[in-house]
Write a protein that binds this DNA or RNA. Structure first.
Lengths: 204, 204, 204, 204
DNA sequence: CATGAATGAGAATTCATTCAT
DNA sequence: AATGAATGAATTCTCATTCAT
């Protein structure tokens, strides 16, 4: 993956990317201003256009970079153990990224949930490796009889990632009241695997 | 002595509200233009301001109206049966509203998922009765031993509504590919109640 | 002068005229709104146009009416006595009008001092009878050797009326601090006739 | 590292200020348009906002600048001689400014005479040094027994400045017919010091 | 006569983008 | 590379005026 170094080759680019994430996370694409982003990165407005074609282009790259950083972290996760353990590890890795790159992740999540024609495909495309990882864990689980086999693994993966995302949104929306980030991995995995119903043989 | 009745006035308001929902759903608050909304409602630009103070004010009312319509439909849902049946009925009612008022619901959902300081509280406030309904069903379920009692019913309600919302987002985001609206109620209830894990005694 | 009755033949017209004066005095021509004037007169906006062609037309008529009311009061002033007495009486009559019709007079004064191409001629035209009155008193004074004969009486009349106006402006501008309306007649006449210099034979 | 010097920036500001004065003098605050002002200064509309926050802000600065220029000229006036000589010199200096900066002075005068809550305090504040100068001359005159001592010097100063202003208004209002600017200083000083009455011992 | 909904020209203001230095 | 002044398209909002009822 030489892409990271290639794309962030200059200091300036990286700084603009960070400042962009910051502003997009806070203000959204339309309300964030090129001027504020450039100044936030320590440059004058004109410099922005030496590195990015337009505000929209930066936005796309912020999303791509956010997804890339998340995926990079996923790559470090252990490949063995039960499905529950592996999903929890993935979720924990995800939360770690979120803590370190909150701005980037906020932008990605917001776009993922806003299903806008202009940006949705970009998000989906960049989240693909992320989803594949989850899907492969679930496929293994299906093969091992740990996961229900009546749903395509893609759909299950979407549901898991969605549940995780949902908890982030509730975390941000509630101002951190519930759930706390610490609780997210177990909550997500619990909700996804076990559901809310009491079943025969369970101890309530 | 109004020559044009109060109903006619309400009529104009309603048309602007519908057109507003349409445009906000497609373009979002910032990209939707007052001019386009007015023309979409069959009026000239200036007329808009005879009915609403500003674009932002209309946006708030669209959200309020969307929430109101959803809640109205919830009120018709049967109050008895198993938790599974009642949740499915609620979800089905929700999908019905969504089919009939897709624009309004899209706006509400997008705002609910965007956690913007300006609009989030409005959304939350208007979705409150909606959430209560779900919560009361779940409380009954906990009392009846059908639902796990280790989570506050509020949190469970948030998770159920979130799951439903998630499926809408995936429906819209995939261009209707998956899930179809018909599948949403069972999917949501299934995911929420049963989870994805195979458990002892289950038949895979 | 049947004009007064002819022009104010309807209640509505008069009420709109009064409301117009009120608003123009407070807000000026541009910032006063037809809607506010109509409502201030107890009518709906549309009714305004049954009585006046435009906002500008009303403005012209307010000025005309203000000048008319001032002149009407001048007509009652005594025609004999010294120049000082007669000028003081004229000034006192003027102050009386100002108290009773403050809005109208404010509009006239403001326009008189704003030398705007559109309205200045109207003001001048309507103040003409007002000025003639002063001028005739001063002509009598010149003939009687009470007033300096080295200035055309028209110019002297302009200076006197100007001095009076100046004091009004200072009264309004200072929020009534100085001069008070009670002081205006003597101040104006004193300044106009006597000046500020101490002269041989005067008792300082 | 400004490629365009601070002077150039000041240059643009100055051009906008001049154009603003021109337009405000002709059209008043409300009827003057930002677009026309910008074009009048040789810039596009948007450029205006690189230098001033709003039309109102420019208006305030035009008034401030007008008062500043007038005061600057006052500062050059001789400090000795009789009261009559000094007042005449002040008035002459004032007329000189008016000739050179007619637009600015028109705006200041119009605002001074319009007693509008929004602008009146600004005008008064900026004219303060201007008034002080006159007042100190008059105080000296009172001490020297040249000026009547029965009026506070502030009030006398207001009357003198008012008289001067009045003559400007009449000059503008009459289209230059009477008085001509050349006549203004002597007229103002004569009217202010001597008054119009013939007194014992005078030669009519 | 009275009404007030509809209109649309007009104005202020914002801001992404360009480009000469 | 960096800069920031200039630009003008786009947008929101106001309000005088019209006119059908």
């Amino acid at each position: 993956m030489p892409r990271i170094t290639a794309e962030a080759k200059t200091q300036a680019r990286r700084r603009l990317l960070e400042a962009g994430a910051e502003h997009f996370a806070r203000d959204g694409l339309e309300r964030a201003s090129v001027d504020a982003i450039a100044v936030g990165a320590g440059y004058a407005k004109g410099t922005f256009y030496n590195y990015f074609d337009s505000k929209g282009a930066l936005f796309g790259e912020v999303i791509a970079e956010g997804a890339r950083r998340a995926v990079a972290r996923y790559a470090e996760v252990e490949e063995h153990g039960s499905v529950r353990e592996r999903l929890t590890a993935l979720a924990a890795a995800d939360v770690t990224v979120l803590r370190e790159e909150e701005a980037f992740i906020k932008v990605v999540v917001r776009e993922a949930m806003s299903f806008r024609a202009e940006t949705y495909p970009v998000v989906v495309q960049h989240l693909a490796p992320y989803l594949s990882k989850v899907e492969s864990v679930l496929s293994d689980g299906i093969a091992a009889g740990e996961i229900r086999s009546d749903r395509p693994s893609v759909q299950l993966a979407l549901m898991f990632v969605g549940t995780l995302t949902l908890l982030y949104v509730q975390h941000w929306g509630s101002g951190g009241a519930w759930p706390s980030l610490d609780d997210v991995p177990d909550l997500a995995v619990g909700a996804f695997l076990d559901g809310a119903a009491v079943r025969k043989g369970d101890t309530a």
